[in-house]
Amino acid sequence: MVNFEPKIVAFCCDQSGYPAADMAGGLELNFPGNVEFVRVPCAGRIETLYLLKALERGADGVLIFACYEENCQFLRGNLRAKSRLSYAHRLLEKIGLEKERIEICHLATNCGPKLAETLHRKSEQLKKLGPNPAKI
């Protein structure tokens, strides 16, 4: 467990999360070692199933980087993502997984530091939680 580097799937809305990741890189803010970015046109594209599948297929945690509320280019995509996340949380609880494994972070294009910080915080948190016991 010493060298456990949590695997994080980070869904990035193309309107905010993805540019923020670019900015974080541009500012040379380090990302934790094991992050996989998934670029989606809007957080509303992220299905509840993707959140579960990510964990099922081996991720230790999932992050959704979506636009601030009331700031969605497509009006309600970020809110749909949030509702789907709350549904996934209910399932996680039943499965017996910590709901901290999936989290949403609202940000804007200029929030590179926030994105990097969230990734690090999540990575540390997942290190404490340990590897995802439900992965197949």
Partner: peptide
């Protein structure tokens, strides 16, 4: 959609 979700949840719960 629900079939996919439930199947995934069941697999993970049993794996755990």
């Amino acid at each position: 959609k629900e079939v996919g979700l439930l199947a995934s949840a069941l697999r993970m719960a049993r794996m755990k």
